[in-house]
Every structure is written in C-alpha cells, then in structure tokens.
C-alpha cells in the first residue's frame, strides 16, 4: 500500500520565517518542535543542507509543538516568535535547538538577554501568550497538510516521506531543483 500524497495547505508567504532567496528553485519547509529530540537531530542537518545548496535553497520554519507531551515546546516557540520582533528569530531558533535540555522560562529569559533583547519586555510578552494564536494556526495548517509528527519536511510544497538524514534529504532536494 502506498502512502498518501500530501501537499502544503498554507503556501509560503512573507509572514513565514525564511532564509534564502524568495526565487530559489527549491523551498524546503520544516514543521518542528523545539523540544522534540528528533527535531534537535535534524537541526544541524538542515544547516548542512543550507550550506550545500546556498542560494538555490529557501528554508522555511513553521511551528508544530506537541505541547502536551513536551511541556516547554509552546513557550520555546513563543520565545522565537517574540525574538522575531527584535530581528532575532533565527538567532533564538538556533539557541533553542542548541539548548534543548534547557527550555524553561528562566532559560528563555536568559537567551533573550544574551541576544540583547529587553528582558522585562520579553518576559511580559511571553507571559501574555501573545504568540500562542499564531503558533496554533501554524500547527493546524500543518495538520491539514498531513503533518503527522516532527520533524516533517515539504520540498516545493510536497510532503517528503523518506528519511531525513543528510544524504537522502540532499538527494531529494537536488532532484527537485532539477539542476544537479
């Protein structure tokens, strides 16, 4: 029995967190959870993939926190969303993945401070759940696109169902780019 075919229900827009040119031949979308150990394993692989493809790849990150199972996942996602307002989304994103074992509130405030973000302002936004709705929307957009766990990848809008080790992912992206 073949698995079913899924595609992104929410197209990539300027509201997304993205790295790389908008007109890159390949867009890689990842749905992930900052507290998920598999996502932590995927993080350096995605970096390697980005380094390999350079400007031929646009990378988009979307939140998919399994917040019941991972008690810090939602607040960690909110922390990155808040950091975005200070132009620090990707810096916070990296810090969170590099410190997956320390995602409690005190640690999140520490990362904000480390990035030069006003700590009390950051804390107020974090405690007010300001970003929870956006994260929930991304989560449901993922569910409606067939995201079934994390990390889930989409290559040019089509759900990638194979292994996400470096070689496999690289090959799939190269195939999609059609150029090498």
């Amino acid at each position: 029995m073949l698995s079913r075919y899924y595609s992104l229900s929410q197209p990539v827009t300027s509201d997304d967190h993205s790295q790389g040119p908008d007109n890159a031949p390949v867009t890689l979308v990842e749905y992930a959870d900052y507290q998920c150990p598999y996502c932590g394993q995927a993080h350096p692989i995605v970096k390697q993939i980005q380094a390999h493809f350079g400007d031929s790849l646009r990378f988009v990150f979307r939140n998919f926190p399994l917040a019941q199972m991972h008690v810090h996942a939602l607040k960690a996602a909110e922390a990155a969303e808040i950091a975005r307002e200070y132009g620090k989304f990707w810096a916070m994103h990296d810090l969170l993945y590099e410190h997956q074992d320390r995602l409690d509130r005190t640690s999140l405030l520490g990362y904000a401070r480390q990035l030069g973000i006003d700590e009390s302002e950051f804390a107020r936004k974090l405690d007010a759940d300001e970003k929870a709705d956006r994260i929930k929307e991304e989560f449901m957009g993922g569910v409606n696109s067939g995201v079934n766990g994390t990390p889930s990848f989409f290559i040019n809008g089509v759900k990638y169902e194979n292994s996400w080790d470096y070689e496999s992912l690289k090959e799939a992206i190269a195939l999609s780019s059609g150029s090498r």
Binding site: L66, A67, Q68, N148
Partner: peptide, 16 residues
C-alpha cells in the same frame, strides 16, 4: 516510535 508520534498528535488534538 511511529505509534508514539501518532498518539501524541491525537492527544494534542483532543481540544480540537
């Protein structure tokens, strides 16, 4: 592992 993520997903969706 697969069951774990499937059940965790449905657990997350209980309110939905």
């Amino acid at each position: 592992p697969v069951c774990g993520s499937q059940i965790a997903l449905y657990n997350e969706l209980i309110p939905t």
